[in-house]
Amino acid sequence: MKEETNSRSKWSKGGRPIKNDPAKNCVMVRFSDQEYAKFLSMYEESGVYAKSIFVKARVFNESFRVIKTDEGTLKYVAKLTQLHAQFRAVGVNYNQVVKQLKSNFSEQKALALLYKLEKITLELVTTQQKIIALCEEFKQRFF
């Protein structure tokens, strides 16, 4: 009769891979209501996804980081990301418009339309500079 591990690895065709050192020992801890409330607040501040991992880290003196999220900052970053996507779309459209002007209009008409496009582009650059200034102000204020 062959060993169980050899036959198991030989005939197993699927499932989770077998761990070399599985965590099979369990330790139970009881807290009072006050201790448990403190434990939960520390656990939530840590940002760790599982209580058992949090407890292991505390027992073995591993450091942990507290991650705090600011709702205003999250909204700001989301809006900034949307704005960046819109700028990229404008850039793509800009290239398409210039190609169409070159191929479909006379040189004089294309130059007149390009002049209008240039004015609008300068307004867009001014807006972008304001956005960069606001980002720098935000960075100075919060970081």
Rank of each mutant, 00 (worst) to 15 (best):
M28C: 10
V125I: 15
F31I: 05
K102A: 05
I53H: 10
G14C: 08
V97I: 15
R30Q: 10
V77K: 09
S7G: 05
A112K: 14
W11P: 00
E3C: 11
D33A: 12
L114E: 05
M28A: 10
R58H: 03
L83K: 08
E44C: 02
A112G: 06
A110S: 14
L80K: 06
I18S: 06
Y43T: 02
M42T: 03
A85E: 08
R16C: 03
Y43F: 15
Y115R: 09
K139V: 05
S12H: 09
L122W: 14
W11G: 04
E44A: 10
S41W: 03
N6G: 01
V125D: 06
E136Y: 15
A23M: 11
T5N: 07
A85R: 14
I120A: 11
S106R: 12
I120P: 00
S12C: 13
K119Q: 08
K102D: 01
A57T: 06
R8S: 04
N61E: 05
M42H: 10
L74D: 07
L114C: 05
Q96A: 09
Y76G: 00
Q96K: 13
Q34Y: 10
I53G: 01
L117I: 05
Q86S: 08
M1L: 08
S32T: 15
V125P: 00
V92D: 04
V27I: 15
V77L: 11
W11F: 14
R16W: 02
F39W: 11
R141L: 12
Y49I: 09
M42R: 09
R141Q: 10
H84D: 00
C26F: 15
L40R: 12
R65C: 05
E137W: 13
G72E: 11
